[in-house]
Design a protein around this nucleic acid. Sequence first.
DNA 1: GACTACGTTCAGTATGTTGTGAATCTGGGA
DNA 2: TCCCAGATTCACAACATACTGAACGTAGTC
Lengths: 180, 180
Amino acid sequence: MTDDAYDDAKLEIADAMARTAEMYGLNRSYGHIYGLLYFVGEPMSLDELVAESGYAKSTVSNAMSALEPYHLVHRQSSPGEGRKVYFEAETDFWTIMQEFFEQQGRREIRIMTRALETAQASLDDAPETDRTSHASARVAELEAFYDQAETLLSFFTRASPEVLFDVVSEVESRTVDDEP
Amino acid sequence: MTDDAYDDAKLEIADAMARTAEMYGLNRSYGHIYGLLYFVGEPMSLDELVAESGYAKSTVSNAMSALEPYHLVHRQSSPGEGRKVYFEAETDFWTIMQEFFEQQGRREIRIMTRALETAQASLDDAPETDRTSHASARVAELEAFYDQAETLLSFFTRASPEVLFDVVSEVESRTVDDEP
DNA sequence: GACTACGTTCAGTATGTTGTGAATCTGGGA
DNA sequence: TCCCAGATTCACAACATACTGAACGTAGTC
C-alpha cells in the first residue's frame, strides 16, 4: 500500500487536471501531464515525464510546448548536463488564471470590436430602413457591452488577489448592513 | 448596395460570434447561427434560420438545443400555429456571461475539490515520506486556492454589473490617491 | 570535426467531431 | 381517428485532432 496510495493520489490529481484542462480548451492529456508535474513538485526531464505518464516522447514534448505559452510550465536547463532540459510546474494559480483570462478576454474583445466597427461602417453606408436601424442598435449595444467588459477585465487581471478579497468582503458587509 | 451592406454587416457579426463561440468551447457554427439571430433581432422559426444560414435543418435544430441550456436562445411557441416554434436570441450579455462562468466555474471547483479530498485521503493512508508530505502540501495549496476561487466566483456571478463598476472605480481612485 | 545525447518535426493511423439527408416521431387540427 | 406540419433522431460521410515511432536536427563533449 505504500507506493500505491501515493500513486493513487497522483493519478487522482492528474485526472482532475486533465478534465479541467479540457474545460479551458486545452488538450486533455496535456492537463494530465501537467497534473503529474504539479503533484511531483520537482523538475522533471522529458524522459522522466515519459516514464511517469506513459505517453510517447513526442507527445510530452508537444505538451510542454503547448503549456509554456500559458506559463504553466517552466523550462530549466542546467549547465554541465548537455542539452537536457527540466520542466517545472508553475504553482501560482492566481497568476496563471489572470494570464489566461487576460489572453482569452483580449482576444475576444479584439475579434468583436473589429467586427462591430466594420459592421457599423456597412450599416452607415446602407440606406436607413427599419432593419438597418434595428441592427445598428444591436451593434451599439454590443459595443457598449465590450467597452464595459474591457474595463472589468483590466481590473480583474491586474488586481492582486488581496485587493480582490478586500473588495469582496467590503461589499459583502455593505450589503448586509443594507438589509432591514 | 442596399441589401448587400446589411448582409455584409450581418455576416461580419455572425463570423465574429462564430469565432467567439469557439473560444468558449461551443461549436463554431452554432455561434454563427446565434449571431444571425442576434443581429436580425426578431424571433425566427427553424425554417427561417435554415434559409438565413444555409445549414441543414438538423444542424439548426441541434444548434438550438445546444444554445438553450446557456440561455443564449429562447423558444417561443405561439398558439394557433401548430407545433411551430420561434427562437429569439438573448441579448443580455451580462447575464449570459455570469451564467456561463457560474456553470463552468462550479464544475471546475467540483471536479477539483472532489479529487483533492480523495487524494488527501490516500496520502493520509500512506506512510509519511518526503514525497508524501511534499504532495500533501501541494494538495493543501490547491484546496486553499479553490476555496478562495469559490468566494470570488460567487461574488462575480451574483453581483450586478453596477455594483462591479462601482467597486472598480472606487478601487481605481483609491490606488491613484496612494501614488506619491 | 565527429560522436552522442538529447529535443523536435513529420507522416501516418486511430479516434472524435461536425454537418447532412432520410427516417422517425409528435402535437394539433379536421 | 387520421392527417399534416413541423421538430427530432439517426447513420453516415467528410473533416479535424491526438498520439505514435521513426527520421531528423543540433548543442555539447571528446
